[in-house]
Design a protein around this nucleic acid. Sequence first.
DNA 1: GCAGCTCTTATAGAAAGCAT
DNA 2: ATGCTTTCTATAAGAGCTGC
Length: 735
Amino acid sequence: MGKAFIEIVIPILAVGGKMLPVHCIVELLDTPPGKDGGDAKKREEVEKRKEGYAIVPSTLQLRDLVRVALSKLDYPPERAKNATGVIQVRNWKALPFASITDNQQSSVGQLFGDLLSHITLKISVLSSDASSANCQNQTPEDQIRSSRVGGNANGSFLSLGNLGNSFFLRRGLDLPFGMMARRMKGGEGKGVGRTAHPVQELRIKLLQVLEKRGPTLLVSHGCPFSQVTVAQILQGKYNKPVSIEKIQAFYQWYNIYNGLTDNTLLPPDRVDSSALPRISSKHWRRPRTLFNPRTELPRLLRWYRQNPRPTRAEMEVYLAELNASDFRRNGTPLQYSSIMIWFKNARVKYRHLLRSTAIAQMREDMVYAKNSKDLVIDESMKDSSDEGESDMVVEEKEMEEQEEEGEEEQEEEQEEEEKTELLEASSSKSPVRSSAKSPSRSPGRSPARMLHLKVEPITEGEDSVGNENQVASVATSVAKPTILPSLLHMHARPHLQPVSIVSNGLIVPSRLHNGSHQAETALHVPDLRKIASGFGISLTPELAAAAHAMPIPGFTHHHFLQALDSVHHKESPSIRLDYHNSALSVPKPTPSPLTTPSASQRRTPTPQSYKHQSESPKPEKSPQSNSSQTSTSPATRVPRKRFTIDPTFEVPKLQSWFAIDPRPDRQTIERYVQELNSSEWRRHQPKYNNRVVYVWFKNARAKYSKMQVSSSDRDPDMERRHHELMRMHQEAQMS
DNA sequence: GCAGCTCTTATAGAAAGCAT
DNA sequence: ATGCTTTCTATAAGAGCTGC
């Protein structure tokens, strides 16, 4: 088996007794560098580099290659004593001989054959003085390497020195290479005795691949051992017998994974040769996956909503489905790990979202409790459950505990999630869990979900510019979904509170609303578009405007989900805009798999609710003036505040204008500015000015001219990206 | 002085990596 | 699996220059 392994890893080519030219680079380090190591000029002189071809017999054994090559290049034999060699294929990372083959007796012809024209033999020759002196400037890993290469002219050291895990390195270095191969070949005994060394071999192999990918990725990249087993092998703690089948499976995987091209995750015809030089380096990094925001992200989101924790099999199905699209067939196919990572990041993203909001909510609640004796839990909620504590009560308790015992937050959350799952499981039996939350809910329907709107206090004199964080915080008060998994399924926190509209059009929890002067206790405005854009979803202009039109009485999570569905399914949104009184008119919720909001959730706004909206906005500084004026001290550099252009609503608008005329005149720009600022959402956002629009057009021109240049360069990859961008651009225009 | 250009820098957000 | 960090990409904005 060991032999078979070698034959698979290194293509054995029938090269007869020919002479082969080996491209060599010899570096001489004759004298030690100065102690300070800073005399670059001197060092330049001592590092003599020689390049040439050594004509060697194809039958020359690898272990003799360095010695023979030096001899052919007219170096005295004693040089070979402290010479080490590595093989570099093209400009990839150089590999020591031991990483190429276990069998140092393999011939050069067998090993390299037709690849020879792509190969460089790099030889480092140290004088004995230099080698000892060099150690002073070497990294510990280099020292380990050097300590093992002294006097070894065949260069067969284990270059695992640049592994991140030097701990493993030291262990691995002591292991006999090829032992397993010999044993397996010789058919030595079975059982434990037979597997002890194979495990060590596995460890070395794992260490080799760890050089290319992080340990946690091995398993997800198909390594047949579990993560725990891998960890145990690496740490030398695995002493169980390993079946032959398992070892075979591992080597099958390893041979592919550790192949020269290391593009195992891509089909051969999709290998990007330009990326090859980076492989096999510990700095290798997976190319960033760009999901198509129009075709792929909505799908992923939909799947996430169905199940935030799909099994591997499910993800494989998703992968196949996504890769079947034209977008992927014409481009780089997705990898399994990309899907996996997306789900992982999505879970993290929404957990953070919920947590940050919950904490902000909790703090503000506490502030309010301090300032008011009026903190009462909504009675309608208190009696909402005939099954014990309402979700809200449970949640509130939990929130308090979190405040007191921050370190226990994770356990609490875990418990909550488990509770959630239990509740969800049981909810089918008892659909009505909190009647007061959704009194109008149809029997069997899922409990109410309500978007809990938070509004940042807008105080007089506060510069609204830079208050983009107003939209950063999103709270979703979600009763546990029963039928349709929630957008925030896994992280739903049933912090259910009815909202009230107070002056300035802000929304506050009704329990905080005393009728008039609670605006200052109002919380953050959540931007539904933020949720969508967080997933890269482009809402239709109507829907985006609807989302902007927050605060919206009665606009619930249900509506948002419904709206998202409509986006995904290309239906017309079920939300229509009615700017009468600057309010969004949400159609009376129709019976749906979800629910209708409770009466308390759908309070009608007070007359002053829209006063703020109807008022002319405060004079606001332009983003530029803001960024340039906020600096009170010249020494203190104020971070540039990036003006945010809404990607779902405003960018398509700009793009469509750009398509009409990429160089609008001043009047046109002013018109665009007015139009952009007239949107409902912009009322509470930093306003456009001519400069912003002008800069956008400027950058757009630069972008598209750059794309044209790239396209003319006939770089296939760039061309493809250009086409993708153009297609997306066209889609944006059409939408 | 203004507009436009190219190049550069800074920022936000997301994908990937890694330790636990 | 999770939480946190790092790295990367896209792009808004700035700097410096040129031409009119």
